[in-house]
Every structure is written in structure tokens, then in C-alpha cells.
Design a protein around this nucleic acid. Structure first.
Lengths: 231, 231
DNA sequence: CGGGAACCTGACGAGTTCCTCACAACCGTC
DNA sequence: GACGGTTGTGAGGAACTCGTCAGGTTCCCG
């Protein structure tokens, strides 16, 4: 959790306040005071997040946001004294990821920054938990642990690797060959049918009714997928 | 941009209001009025987003959020009359993706829902997946899924391969031989007439009136083509 | 060296898919 | 409108896929 944040804020006092909060959280920050500088800095530094005041000289926040969105997919958190509904709507419509009105609490601002960074997957280093979650199943590669609806589930190494791969991309179909590779089964030239057995055993552990799977679905003629199907 | 949203809201009037707004935007919605029902519904329906009131009976919003986060990675938008800074901070800390205090503007709520869906990449259409679309038909090779006017359609492997090829180049005429190759039917030295049967079966699934096809068109003496024109 | 866990294989049955065949409907041309 | 070639369609059986189980092999640990 250490990102680079571009702060575009007219008021120098405010900007300094935000910068200090960011540094205290372990982030790095670039501060600019007008719209043109914001765009230049964004191009130069490629920040992980832009905190954008709307009342900026030269180019206003809306204009900056428009250009940022056109060129890049950097998350934007808008910050403004203007709080009319139309402003908020316009801001969010332009692609802002969050919108806070002044006066704001610095701690809330930091919390929202964390949230936006988390969701956009730009939080620099991945010290955040690498747990993969999908369809009510949580796979923790560090602790080598699987939980289903909160209940711990014992898994063999092969089962674990298969589940980890599938939970990483829910809905995606994996061929037997792909799943076999997860279990390092290729060195022994195993049959693809071996995967079937692992899937069966996983179903016994993860499905309420293993005969009628709701999560580990068979895609006939192709392979398997982990799904959050709506029944 | 059409997601399934779970609305967990104590007040039935409010809930109904939100539900209608969601439907008007093209989303689908499930409404529940207490925390336990929210968790059950989330397990059953696997929504793309949860709009979560904090003041819920049985289990409160914080508890619901905690469990949701443990099992799954569904985005959460918190909604509450409690507006103390600590509530906001706790909510965001628990992993909420946004936090709005009542009274709120329905249009702002919708705008924030759009934003959260966009950022979480759950808005139905995955930009990452190379989904092929033509004539109201979407073919997703990664998920191995076909949708027609939004409705999921079950396809056999051969049907899927044929449709994938045709949707990749709408309007182009494919000979039976070409389509046969898609189904790996060549190694089995099958007749080209086998393609006719697959086309027929596809028409039963994709055409409003299979006798008068509007999408899977016959090109007499040549083969078939998928028309991208909406009649 | 014995025991146990994990994994693979091979086989069988059940279910699904695919192809062929035959005939009806259709198209285009004369 | 008639004719030859092309396409639509239904049914049945061959071919394939998948779930499942029992047994065998490998590996690790005591």
C-alpha cells in the first residue's frame, strides 16, 4: 500500500495538508496548483491516483478529468466546495471514481483514497492479502488454506492448485490440460482424466449437492469453470 | 452495463425507490430487508453489487459487509443515516467501495453505482474478454458463453465454434467446408450436410421464428452468414 | 520396512452430442 | 408451372464425454 498520488489543489494550505496526510500513510505525492500543471504532471509521473479539486485555474477540474480519462485510466478522486447535485453528477459521469465535498475529514479522505486504490488494483506493492475470493470460496496461497462460506476446507495440494487457478479468474473456462499443468502433472505425462477425479473430490468438499454442482461447473467438451451462477 | 444488484434496506419505501431506479437503468435487482436475508441472497444470486443500509435488523450492515468480504469480492456501496466520521471510516475500512449518507439524491446514487461497477469491472461486459458481438449475439470464448439479446443460450461445442467463427466476421459468407473445420469434424471425414443440422439447431435457439431466420441466413448455393443488421 | 496419503489409471454406465439418412420443402431457371 | 439441384427437418444410432469407483503406484514419514 504505497502509491504515487497527484494532488491538484488551488489552495496551498489545503494541498499541503493533503500531502502530509498522504506521506503519513506511506504514499508519495506530487502537488500542483492549476489544471495545466496537473495534466503535465500526470503525463510525466504516471500517478496511481489523482486527487482533483474542481476550482482550478487555467483548466478546471472537469476539463482535467476529461483529458485524463481520454488518455489514461488513472483513478480520479474529485474534491470540491461546489456541492450542487449537478456538479456531483457531472463529476461522476466524467469518470471520477469518487467525489467528496468540502469541508471534508482528512481521515475520511485517506480512507476513500485507500478504497479507490484497492479497487483499481494500483496500490503499488501487493502486501495486501493475496487471497483470491470468488463464488463464496476464499483461497489463501500464503497460508495454504481454503474456506467455503467461511468454513475451513481441507484440500490436497493438487486440489488446492486447481482451485487457486480457477478462483483467480471466475467464470473463465479452464481446459483439463490447463488444470493439469497447475498440478505439475505434466512431468509424469498423466491423463487429462485425472483432473476429473480432482474436480469430483473438490465437489464433495465444496458443493452442497455434489451431484448437482452450483460452483464447479462442467463445460461439456471443453473443461471446467468456477462460477457464481444465479440459480 | 447491466448488472444484478442486491439492495439490503430496512425501509420498504426506500428500497422500492432504489429498486425502481435500478430497473430504469437497465439493471436487475433483488431486495431484502434484513441482514440475514442479505447474506442468503448474496450466496444465492451472486450479485455484481450490494447496496447496503447499515441499520438492518438481525445482522447490521457492518456484519453483513464483513461476511461478504470474507467469502467474495463483491463491491459494496454503503448507505446510511448515521453520518459520524467513525461510521464512515469503519465502513470504508471494512472494504466498502463507497459510502453515502442519507438523505441522498437518487441520481447521485445511480451515478455512484455506475462508477463502482465500472471500476470493479463487473458491469456485465468485460473489457478484458475478447467478446465477439454481432446481430444481438455475444460470444465469449473465455467464458465459453453465448448470449442472445442478453439472455444466456446453451450451446454444444460444435454450435459454439460455428457461432464464434461467424460472429467474428458478420456478413461474411462461410462455406459448409469452412464451418465444418471449426467443429474439428474434418478428421472424422463428415459430410458437409452435418453443418446444416448445427445451423438448424442454432436457429432454434437464436431465432424468434426459426422458419424465417433473421440472423443466421442461408446463402443459396454457397453457405451461411450471420447478419449484423437488426431488422 | 510398514503404513498412510495423494495421485493416477482403467473401466463401466449414463448421459449428451454428432452424424447420417431419408424425405419434404424450397430456390432458381427454363 | 415444371424440373433439377439445394436446403430444412425429424429420427435413430454411432461416437463421444463425463462421473464414479476400485485398485495400483509413488512418495513421505515414522
Amino acid at each position: 500500500m504505497c502509491a504515487h498520488v497527484l494532488v491538484a489543489e488551488d489552495d496551498e494550505m489545503q494541498a499541503e495538508l493533503i500531502r502530509r496526510s498522504l506521506l503519513a500513510e506511506g504514499h508519495t505525492a506530487t502537488v500542483v496548483h492549476d489544471g495545466r500543471a496537473a495534466l503535465d504532471a500526470a503525463r510525466l509521473h504516471r500517478p496511481d491516483l489523482v486527487v482533483l479539486d474542481l476550482m482550478l485555474p487555467v483548466i478546471d477540474g472537469f476539463g482535467v478529468c476529461r483529458v485524463l480519462r481520454r488518455d489514461d485510466d488513472v483513478p480520479v478522486l474529485m474534491l470540491t466546495a461546489r456541492s450542487t447535485e449537478d456538479d456531483v453528477l457531472l463529476g461522476l459521469e466524467l469518470g471520477a471514481d469518487d467525489y467528496m465535498t468540502k469541508p471534508y475529514s482528512p481521515r475520511e479522505l485517506m480512507a476513500r483514497i485507500r478504497t479507490v486504490l484497492r479497487r483499481s488494483g494500483r496500490d503499488g506493492d501487493r502486501r495486501a492479502d493475496p487471497v483470491v475470493r470468488a463464488g463464496g470460496i476464499a483461497v489463501d496461497p500464503v497460508r495454504h488454506e481454503v474456506r467455503c462460506e467461511g468454513r475451513p476446507v481441507e484440500c490436497t495440494p493438487a486440489e488446492f492448485e486447481i482451485l487457486l487457478a480457477m478462483a483467480g479468474e471466475p467464470e473463465r473456462v479452464f481446459t483439463r490440460r490447463q488444470l493439469l499443468q497447475c498440478t505439475r502433472g505434466l512431468d509424469r505425462a498423466s491423463t487429462e482424466r485425472a483432473v476429473d477425479v480432482h474436480i469430483m473430490n473438490l465437489r464433495k468438499k465444496l458443493e452442497a449437492d455434489p451431484r448437482r454442482p452450483a460452483r464447479l461447473l462442467t463445460v461439456f467438451g471443453v473443461g471446467y469453470k468456477l462460477s457464481g451462477v444465479r440459480a
